[in-house]
Design a protein around this nucleic acid. Structure first.
Length: 472
DNA sequence: ATGTAC
């Protein structure tokens, strides 16, 4: 594996063997994975062999090993040219993403109430392995409505306000969800989890705006220095996981029928326009809407606690996914093409003026929400005109040490003391879970974001720092 | 990420 430096934040893997296009990695040299110890760039090369792939197999600065595709990967296939869709290009946590809310309240004014706020959130946010969810659904019929309607359905049922939907990617729901493709087992797993955080790197954080890079965009997003925010990072829980598992099994079976062979079994795929490809996209969309409704409900729970303790409202800045495939039109080799754009651990970053943006965000561009690892900053970015990689950017810090290694290096109790020494309050679900998420198990988020901007993928708008964390 | 194993 050889990396050719094209510019300080852009490296190329030239096509070899079955690769149809090059690999392109957007990262400073210091963030590049070690090609001897880490297989994630082999995964970038493997993705480049997929039928119908156009331009390049892209990797964001937070790239790391995933199932088949790397996390931090972007790949687009040409639908009309027999291009494939692959569940591994989306990941198990379908439409995992981030929701950011802001309060008209400064960090200093919150300080005397912070402990009570964190206790309230601790009690109100279901998380970890324990059962519990904000919203108990009445049965499959209601779940099916949620799988089609996403956040819009939650708001229609009284869980939120109409303005929330204008501040959700896709206005709260992706189209073409097909609940008929969702197995009974997926329904069973998802039924009791709407409005629950999960575990791993998922969190709810109380944060403060620490630095503004772009005043005009920050103003459009409703962000100012010193202001208190709530960030929620969660996904589609057991529902998305089961849907991914089910659909992978189908694709593994039908690949020979379409004469598809892949260098790694985890790259199972089918043509976008085949029955199996369409079935996956319908099921994936259902899981995506589940994830959005999940974050809507978590946001509602946070709002109730926040209002009770501080007597202030939380307004939605934005809700955005970083694990999704979408059919989009892009110009490739001078012609408009319908592409299936896989983003796995990668975030869509619409530039200013994009027609999919609501009017009040048109001048600034789309808010892109980048969650940091525990105890480290998070970022708000925005899209830029003429960006490469189908208007995509990074999604977070990216793990560099395994959960096991992380848990061995530090005890959760010590980590909590370290965070509290930095005035960050911690409400965890388990000591082990806390230790697995130690910040030094992740890349430096600030370096990741700098690389993304340096590579021309996005622009920095604001930096947020944690003041209290609720961990799954 | 995940009822951390079909």
């Amino acid at each position: 594996m050889e990396l050719v430096e094209e510019s300080p934040y852009r490296f190329r893997i030239d096509p070899l063997g079955e690769m149809r296009v090059p690999g392109v990695v957007f990262a400073a040299r210091s963030l590049l994975p070690d090609v001897r110890a880490d297989r994630s760039l082999d995964q970038v090369a493997n993705v480049a062999t997929l039928r119908g792939i156009v331009e390049a197999s892209y990797a964001m600065p937070d790239v790391h090993l995933g199932y088949g595709f790397p996390i931090g990967g972007v790949a687009a296939t040409d639908v009309e040219a027999g291009g494939v869709v692959s569940p591994g290009g989306v990941g198990f946590d379908i439409s995992c993403g981030v929701r950011l809310l802001v309060a008209d309240l400064d960090r200093a004014a919150l300080a005397p109430m912070l402990d009570r706020l964190m206790d309230g959130l601790d009690a109100a946010i279901p998380r970890g392995m324990t059962k519990g969810a904000v919203w108990k659904l009445s049965g499959r019929a209601q779940l099916d409505e949620l799988l089609v309607g996403g956040s819009r359905y939650a708001v229609e049922q009284g869980h939120g306000v109409e303005r929330d939907l204008a501040r959700c990617e896709d206005y709260g729901a992706v189209s073409d969800a097909d609940p008929g493709q969702v197995s009974d087992r997926a329904v069973q797993r998802g039924q009791g989890q709407v409005g629950s955080l999960g575990s791993g790197n998922h969190f709810l954080e109380v944060q403060a705006v620490d630095h503004i890079y772009d005043e005009a965009a920050a103003d459009a997003f409703g962000l100012r220095a010193g202001q208190v925010c709530v960030m929620i990072h969660s996904g589609s829980r057991g529902m998305g996981h089961q849907i991914c598992t089910d659909q992978l099994r189908v694709m593994e079976r039908v690949m020979p029928r379409y004469d598809i062979s892949v260098p790694d079994r985890q790259l199972a795929c089918a043509p976008v326009s085949s029955p199996e490809g369409r079935a996956y996209l319908g099921a994936m969309a259902a899981a995506a809407n589940y994830a959005r409704a999940n974050r809507q409900m978590l946001g509602q729970a946070a709002r109730r606690v926040f209002e009770r303790v501080t007597h202030r409202q939380l307004d939605l800045v934005y809700d955005i996914s970083h694990n999704l495939a979408k059919i989009e039109t892009h110009r490739v080799d001078g012609a408009e093409r319908r592409l299936c754009v896989h983003r796995k651990g990668a975030t869509r970053a619409l530039p200013p003026g994009h027609p999919d943006l609501p009017a009040d965000l048109a001048a600034a561009g789309q808010p892109v929400l980048i969650p940091g690892s525990m105890g480290t900053p998070s970022y708000v970015l925005t899209g830029v005109e003429g960006a490469p990689a189908f208007a995509s950017t990074c999604h977070g810090a990216g793990r560099v040490r395994s959960r096991k290694q992380a848990a061995k290096a530090v005890h959760g109790r010590d980590l909590r003391h370290q965070l509290e020494a930095h005035d960050i309050l911690v409400r965890g679900a388990s000591w082990r879970g806390l230790a697995e998420e130690a910040p030094d198990a992740y890349k430096d988020i600030s370096a990741v974001v700098e690389s993304a901007e340096g590579g021309g993928l996005c622009r920095q708008v604001a930096r947020l720092v944690p003041v209290g964390v609720v961990k799954g």
